[in-house]
């Protein structure tokens, strides 16, 4: 029994003129606007649209001379983890990887480990692992040598319980990398911006494969759906906690596949978030775990499943 319509992520790019029609239609269909970026006369809408109604938005979008593309990574928060923040890894290729994922609609956070360099000496701290585990997917950007990627670096993946993607230079099988869920080659250590045809192909392949991974996670979640959809919680926060509009952080509410990160200080706002009224008599704290995030003093919301709560809103 499917009580919740599957939402599909799309990006609309078109003129500002009459784009309100799309927003109205989206609301009527029960979809959600994740992010709206207006730049002079152009507007970019990142939306979650009920799967069976996508064609309606497509038709309207085409009529308004805009384009609608599927952006599978919309509504996900991805950790791009580099062994350290030294110039060996940054800005290229770790930042290039993060930037490319954002093209696909993802929100990315760069995480540089304190002691992730080297082979025998590489290690990660408990705090770092917990921070990474707050995300939907972790992408570890490794280097050129297959021996390091297969034999030494995987210890950095231990204790990470979200899907793990590893990028590196050589062509390897994911089975050879313990604990990794996906390996993407051709993106190794580089000291220049990735703009060669082959390099961009590697990044395109990465977006495609990470997109597939996100789709798989979404299907998995749909089997035992979340008690409430995270975009719905976002909408309620926008309406019930007006202070969110004063937050200057990029993406004040960051959607995740099974929750949200709210960039308000935990100590001042966690009560308000817990008391967020989703329906008559149903508070957010009834259907979600609200905890302090390891990232700054933000609030992390993880929504519970139907089997746990017993109902869906």
């Amino acid at each position: 029994m499917m009580l919740v319509a599957l939402l599909d992520p799309y990006i609309y790019e078109g003129g500002v003129h009459k784009h309100g029609l799309i927003l109205e239609l989206l609301e009527d269909l029960g979809g959600y606007l994740v992010q709206k970026t207006a730049a002079s006369t152009e507007v970019t809408l990142i939306m979650l649209i009920p799967r069976k109604d996508v064609h309606l938005i497509e038709e309207l979008g085409t009529k308004l001379l805009g384009t609608i593309t599927r952006a599978p990574m919309t509504g996900t928060e991805i950790a791009v983890v580099s062994p350290t923040l030294a110039y060996h890894h940054l800005p290229h290729s770790a930042c290039d990887v993060a930037e490319y994922l954002r093209h696909g609609g993802a929100n990315t956070n760069m995480i540089g480990l304190a002691r992730g360099m080297g082979r025998r000496v590489a290690l990660s701290a408990d705090y770092e692992r917990k921070l990474i585990n707050e995300h939907d997917i972790a992408i570890f950007t490794f280097g050129t040598f297959s021996d390091c990627i297969m034999n030494k670096k995987p210890k950095l993946l231990e204790g990470i319980n979200i899907p793990i993607v590893v990028t590196g230079g050589p062509d390897l099988n994911v089975e050879d990398i313990p604990n990794a869920d996906m390996y993407i080659g051709n993106i190794g250590r580089v000291a220049h911006r990735l703009r060669g045809v082959d390099e961009l192909k590697g990044l395109d392949r990465m977006n495609e494969k990470v997109g597939e991974l996100v789709d798989r996670v979404r299907e998995d979640i749909a089997k035992d759906p979340l008690a409430v959809l995270s975009p719905r919680v976002m909408k309620e926060i926008h309406e019930q906690i007006p202070d969110i509009h004063n937050v200057l952080a990029p993406a004040p509410i960051t959607l995740q596949l099974d929750g949200l990160r709210v960039k308000l200080p935990y100590e001042d706002y966690h009560v308000a978030i817990e008391m967020l009224e989703l329906d008559e008599g149903v508070l957010l704290s009834d259907v979600a775990r609200i905890t302090p995030s390891k990232m700054k003093n933000y609030i992390l919301i993880k929504i519970r499943r139907r089997s746990d709560v017993g109902f869906i809103l």
């Binding site: 050129t144 040598f145 297959s146 021996d147 230079g169 050589p170 190794g188 250590r189 580089v190 000291a191 220049h192």
Partner: peptide, 21 residues
């Protein structure tokens, strides 16, 4: 030169970038 021959070319590219930087 690297142990795995195919890894030499990408590593050379890194050195090239460093030298030119």
């Amino acid at each position: 030169q690297t142990t795995v021959e195919a890894e030499a070319a990408p590593y050379r590219k890194i050195i090239e970038d460093v030298i030119s930087d």
